[in-house]
Design a protein around this nucleic acid. Structure first.
Ligand SMILES: [Mn+2]
Ligand SMILES: [Mn+2]
Ligand SMILES: [Zn+2]
Ligand SMILES: [Zn+2]
Lengths: 139, 139
DNA sequence: TCAACAGTTTAGAATTATTATAATGTAGAA
DNA sequence: TTCTACATTATAATAATTCTAAACTGTTGA
């Protein structure tokens, strides 16, 4: 969607230096029409397919965490050994296909707002996430 | 709540041999009035306080996974490095206090049923879980 | 009663995701 | 161009979890 100079602006305006590595990761994460879910490992593979210059694993972690902190990525709580990240930062919920180990967005229009009729004193709500685990019908 | 012979029956009827280690873990997990949440590490600490006989880490993992498979424990998807387990296997949702790293049950009466108006062909729903992340108001 | 077997436990090694370290490199300001 | 704070990197460290393979034990049925 955006070209490099737009990523550079985006990074600068976030207080992040537009380094080669961060721009490349922006291209991979934010160039596509569709949003998607990924693990750090997925991202490392995408990077190695997209470029000959390697980006170190530490930088991938650092960048993903920086983007998450800036709100450009969300981390999705799937109980798993690996963290799942989401380039779709709008409010939405997920199916998790346990047979295929696949995360699928649920269109927000398809979920009635979740009503919680209780609260915890001294705490404020940061997010409300619904995870619908599904599996093959036959199993 | 139950005494040892009841745990033995419970284990036997589940097809699990009632070994010393499993009975001890049953006592720790299911003897208390209130249900609770724990990590493997929490459980290991409880065991070492409750008995002089050590139970190896591998057995703790094996047993927790066996109990989960039998439906005596639930695993709660908090994105974290550690798995959280729940002795409350009835349908309910959670607050996760990000300031205190604390999991708190939400009484099921306090949550309106979550309505999902879409489905995935060939898949059936296994669970619907709501996670409400909260933090200190000041932060 | 007890031998035999399947299932279980165990210590320790292996694996995997993630984070820390500390040296080197670089973007941006002056 | 020079300087400096920030970023990247290779590598080591850490931490959760799983694997391995040998020793052990609950149960069964002769
Ligand atoms: Mn797990
Ligand atoms: Mn994390
Ligand atoms: Zn999503
Ligand atoms: Zn709970």
């Amino acid at each position: 969607m955006l070209n490099n100079s737009q990523y550079i602006d985006k990074l600068r305006s976030s207080g992040l230096r537009p380094t080669k590595q961060r721009i490349k990761i922006c291209e991979i994460l934010f160039n596509s029409q569709k949003t998607f879910h990924f693990t750090i490992n997925d991202l490392v593979e995408k990077i190695s397919k997209a470029t000959n210059d390697k980006i170190s694993l530490a930088t991938v972690y650092n960048t993903v965490h920086a983007f998450k902190k800036k709100g450009y990525l969300k981390e999705i709580p799937i109980n798993s050994d690996q963290s799942y990240f989401d380039t779709n930062t709008s409010h939405h919920h997920h199916f998790y296909d346990e047979s295929q180990k696949d995360l699928i967005d649920i269109d927000d229009a398809d979920v009635e707002p979740v009503k919680i009729n209780t609260k915890i004193p001294g705490k404020k709500i940061r997010s409300v996430e619904v995870l619908v685990k599904v599996e093959d019908i036959k199993s």
